[in-house]
Structure formats: structure tokens, C-alpha cells
Amino acid sequence: MNTKEKNKVPLIEDMFKWPSDEPRIIASRCKKCGTVSFPKLTFCQNPSCEKKRENIEVIELSNKGKLYSYTVQRYKPPEPFRYEPYKPYGIGMVDFPEGIRIWGMITRMDNLKIGMNVKTTAGKLYEDEENEYLTWMWEPVD
């Protein structure tokens, strides 16, 4: 029996802070106008801002936000999405204090409510022989 613990790695690097006891979304912010973008952008998305790389800084968002709204994906999406073993999942958008609203899976699909407090966490999508592949998820804390 293989007892070796698998590496827990983000499926795509650099979208949320990992490894971490307190995973946070990695975003970009414009030093001139304060616009926050996720995934992080090279240039500010505000049409009034100059398109200069040096105007952008990388930030970690607060780890708590409020659920804007949610749904449940009842049917299995096609490849390349992998969530194994598959089961329906909650999914929704969260408003962060930095003014940005972000998508993510939710750690449960029942007892969800618009406006509830959630925190950013990491959850497993699937695994292979070497790794467990993670993404960011919203965990209700109310």
C-alpha cells in the first residue's frame, strides 16, 4: 500500500496563494486608479488609465467576502473540467472588500444564502498518481 502523501498543487499556478494556511486570491491592482482585476492583468482595464506595466501591482485579496449569488451545477460539465469523483457542486460569485466580484466553486451545495459570509479556501478537483490538483473555493462561515 502506498502511504506516501501526495503533493497538493494548484491546477493552474499563480491564481491563489498556495501553499498557505490561509489561501487568498491573487489579483492585480492599478496604482493610479485602484482598479482590481482577476486573474491579474498586465495593464489596467480602466480605459482612462495609461497602459503601462509599471502601474500594476500584484496583491492578495482579503480572505473573506459576501456571497453575491449562487447556483448548483447539477450535470457534469465536459472535459477539460475534472472534478473527481464527480458530484453536483455549488458555485457562485463573491464580493470582496477590494470592490471585485469573483467566481468560484463553493464547498457545499445546501444551505446557501445570498449575502452570507464566506472565506477563501483551497479544495481538491482531482488527483493522479503524484499530485492532488487544487483550486480556490468559497467556504461559508456564517
Binding site: L11, I12, M15, P39, Q73, P77, P80, F81, R82, Y83, Y89, I91, W103, G104, M105, L125, T135, W136
Partner: peptide, 9 residues
Amino acid sequence: QRFVMTGYT
């Protein structure tokens, strides 16, 4: 990115 990380159809 959106599809594999969040299953957002």
C-alpha cells in the same frame, strides 16, 4: 482557466 478552475458553465 475559468472552465477547469471553477466548473463555470
